[in-house]
């Protein structure tokens, strides 16, 4: 179990552009951090950096698990549950096939049916993904996030494309994950519905 994540003096760089400089923050188990900032402020890049996909221009991100510290980018990635911009769905795969593939890829198997029930997609289980609405696609992506059973959730605009019921579902899942001792970092324009911290990018304000 991860106790905390610390970012120290991070520089977020995309290509030759510097987006964020000298950023430090800590997220503890059970906490959610929401990233705010205008488009292009570097929210997505920061999430990719934390996930270990984007190398840090400077500084470090460290996960603390017991006495061990994990700061190697690719090792860090093995703790990450990722919900990106894109839904990562193949049009010809059915909902359950899609979920089963990712469960197996992540070395987890078994409870796909229960997960689909949890996100409200039980009825669509055998439907190819090309017939899903944007909201349903997002729900499937959420089911996949749950299936990964990773402690650190990195969410890029988790509320996008969802209706009010869907948004409530996301907030509930985040609260549940934090309740189980997970960590959440979400780039979002909307409140996570928790007494969470907010990190504003672009004007370097850290609200506690």
């Amino acid at each position: 179990m991860i106790q905390s994540l610390t970012a120290e003096k991070l520089t977020v760089q995309r290509g030759s552009r510097r987006l964020v400089e000298n950023l430090s923050f800590t997220v503890k188990a059970g906490q959610a951090l929401s990233l705010e900032g205008a488009n292009g402020a570097g929210k997505t890049s920061l999430l990719r950096l934390i996930a270990g996909l984007l190398p840090a221009g400077a500084g470090s991100v460290t996960l603390h698990e017991g006495d061990t510290e994990i700061s190697e980018p690719e090792e860090r990635g093995k703790y990450v549950g990722w919900l990106g911009h894109h839904d990562a769905l193949k049009a010809s795969f059915t909902v359950s096939e899609q979920l089963a593939f990712f469960s197996k890829l992540y070395g987890r198997e078994g409870d796909e049916i229960a997960l689909l029930g949890q996100v409200g997609l039980s009825r669509q289980a055998e439907l190819p993904c090309r017939y899903l609405s944007a909201g349903q696609r997002r729900r499937l992506a959420l089911a996949r996030l749950l299936a990964s059973r990773r402690p650190l959730w990195l969410l890029d605009e988790p509320f996008a494309a969802l209706d009010t019921v869907g948004k409530a579902l996301v907030a509930r899942l985040i609260a549940l994950h934090c309740g189980e001792g997970g960590l959440v970092i979400a780039a979002t324009h909307e409140s996570l519905g928790l007494s969470n911290e907010t990190l504003r990018l672009g004007n370097a304000v850290l609200k506690l």
């Binding site: 093995k78 990106g84 911009h85 894109h86 890829l105």
Partner: peptide
């Protein structure tokens, strides 16, 4: 393009 590669990169 559809984001699967990120998930593959983060997989075991």
């Amino acid at each position: 393009e559809d984001g699967s590669l990120d998930l593959i990169a983060l997989s075991p």
